[in-house]
Nucleic acid binder design. Structure first.
Lengths: 168, 168
DNA sequence: CTTGACAAGTTCCAAAAAGAAACTGACTAT
DNA sequence: ATAGTCAGTTTCTTTTTGGAACTTGTCAAG
């Protein structure tokens, strides 16, 4: 399968990865959440080549994750800002960061700390169920075919996840 | 910056992406959560080339996200199972899937539905603060340098995110 | 008027990675 | 003997990336 066809897959993860499933794209978005907006700033902070950066920014704009906004005329200069669609990637990025904090940090601990403004404390993200509000782990969810599935494939026979628990 | 140095960055997202920040790796993990364990099964379901699949599985094993477990001798056959470290990627994958359901689905809706076994309802993941339990959005968090930051860089001047709200 | 700086790219080439498809090795079934 | 299964490896071609220089429009200094 090729990258270009990934957004046709009957899988929301594949479709999401068609937009952000690239080594640089998520780092660009991380910087967007930190307030970076300009081409040069992305380049200096990320160490990505201008070539690739231009391509990734263009794709993010095409997918409506970023918007190009002029901040001066003569010469025309444009910066990149998160759209609402882009801002909604925050939970996903937060979850990836949290995993890295837990499993990839060195002995000094997490490189950056997230302060929850509402309560004022350093926080970790916790994933809960939208219906009952209880925390959700991998073993607490069961997957079923939904309306958008189509006819293309079939779910694999469910196996138990490693480490105990019951997955049907 | 090269892919190989990414896990040295003082950023948990970069370090996480050094492990899973690849177009195929997250799709492999998605299938792991669906119960897929064998080389052939991954290949058939993903449409990835055997070459790349072998490479990604090897890297996931090296990083301790998957474990290789023999399921028969003569001939030796091994399958890949999520470790606890791998299982903890579930919130991140769920968040990416949820974004895709919301922003990349066609008119028929989400391809697959997640049922929360504890309460029995179809669910979306909601990210809440570990300290106060309130939902957390991008505009509710403030980023500060933590103990693991080192001396390598500096946080950018914080800008307001697009679409209202106040980010200090 | 010429030079230099700034910002946001584009162009060019060599190197690395990915795609496609055949090949290997240790078996089992017919 | 022949074919099939499974988990890869090898070979070859195409695509993508990394690195670095070049372009365009404008302002400021000398």
């Amino acid at each position: 399968m090729r990258w270009e066809n990934l957004d046709q897959e009957p899988c929301s993860l594949a479709r999401t990865l068609a937009v952000v499933g690239d080594r640089w794209t998520l780092l660009v978005l991380r910087d967007c959440f930190l307030g970076v907006r300009r081409f040069d700033a992305f380049e200096k902070r990320l160490g990505v080549t201008r070539h690739v950066l231009a391509d990734r920014l263009k794709k993010l704009v095409e997918h409506g994750v970023l918007a190009k906004v002029a901040y001066q005329d003569r010469p025309l200069r444009e910066e990149y800002r998160l759209t609402e669609k882009g801002i909604e990637l925050h939970p996903a990025i937060l979850a990836l960061v949290s995993w890295g904090d837990r499993h990839m940090a060195d002995e000094r601990g997490a490189p950056i700390v997230h302060i929850h403004k509402t309560c004022g404390h350093p926080m970790r993200p916790v994933t809960v169920c939208s219906e009952c509000g209880e925390p959700v782990g991998a073993r607490d969810v069961q997957v079923e075919v939904g309306a958008g599935w189509g006819e293309q494939g079939v779910l694999p026979q469910r196996q138990k996840l490693t480490g105990g628990g019951d997955n049907g």
